[in-house]
């Protein structure tokens, strides 16, 4: 009887130690997590896309404009969102240059009212984030810039489980998620 209790506690202690090691690894180094939603199309698929989140970059460490990040939603900190940084602290950026107003009826012309005239300065310690699908993303344009303390990691790569196991030389649509802040010719 005492032996079985001993074995039980031994196994339990292995499970606890093993589980905690995995958890510490995931929160300190890299986490593999699922994303859902259309706000990051076409960079990330709307379902069954799993991202590698590098925890070195949590709390904004070494982050640059153009990086994709995983952050807590300010109004619902139980939920995580994947967005791209389009403004670092101190940057002067437009709130929403993609905002279009258009006429109904026959004259379907695209009018930009003052989308190109509304600037803000991103406050210290905050970043402005937008989803890559500007037409379908709830981001800083609605809830203002987010504090860097809510940033939990940078997205460095993704696996798309909608793709077959092997296609074009990659497993499950593996690709690196790049920073697209580049020089303009």
């Amino acid at each position: 009887m005492l032996d079985s209790v001993k074995t039980f506690t031994k196994i339990l202690s292995y499970i606890i130690r093993g589980g905690c090691t995995i958890h510490v690894f995931q929160s300190t180094f890299i986490e593999f997590t699922e994303t859902r939603g259309e706000s990051m199309l076409p960079t990330l698929n709307s379902a069954n896309d799993f991202v590698f989140s590098d925890k070195h970059y949590r709390n904004g460490r070494d982050l640059k404009i153009g990086d994709c990040i995983v952050a807590l939603k300010p109004t619902d900190p139980d939920q995580r969102v994947c967005k791209r940084i389009t403004g670092m602290p101190g940057d002067l950026i437009l709130i929403d240059p993609s905002l279009k107003n258009y006429y109904n009826g026959n004259k379907q012309e695209i009018e930009f009212e003052d989308s190109f005239n509304k600037y803000i300065r991103v406050p210290k310690g905050h970043v402005w984030v937008t989803g890559d699908n500007l037409a379908h993303s709830l981001d800083s344009r609605s809830y203002n810039s987010i504090p860097l303390g809510l940033v939990k990691g940078k997205i460095i790569a993704a696996n798309d489980f909608n793709k077959p196991f092997w296609e074009n030389g990659v497993i499950y649509g593996f690709r690196k998620i790049e920073n697209n802040y580049v020089d303009e010719a």
Binding site: N59, G60, P77, D78, K124, G125, P147, L148, G149
Partner: peptide, 19 residues
């Protein structure tokens, strides 16, 4: 996180400096 009430003393990351 679910039990934050009025008059609790909390420790939190500064919004102006995440470190």
């Amino acid at each position: 996180k679910d039990n934050l009430k009025l008059d609790d003393v909390i420790l939190f990351r500064s919004p102006t400096n995440p470190n």
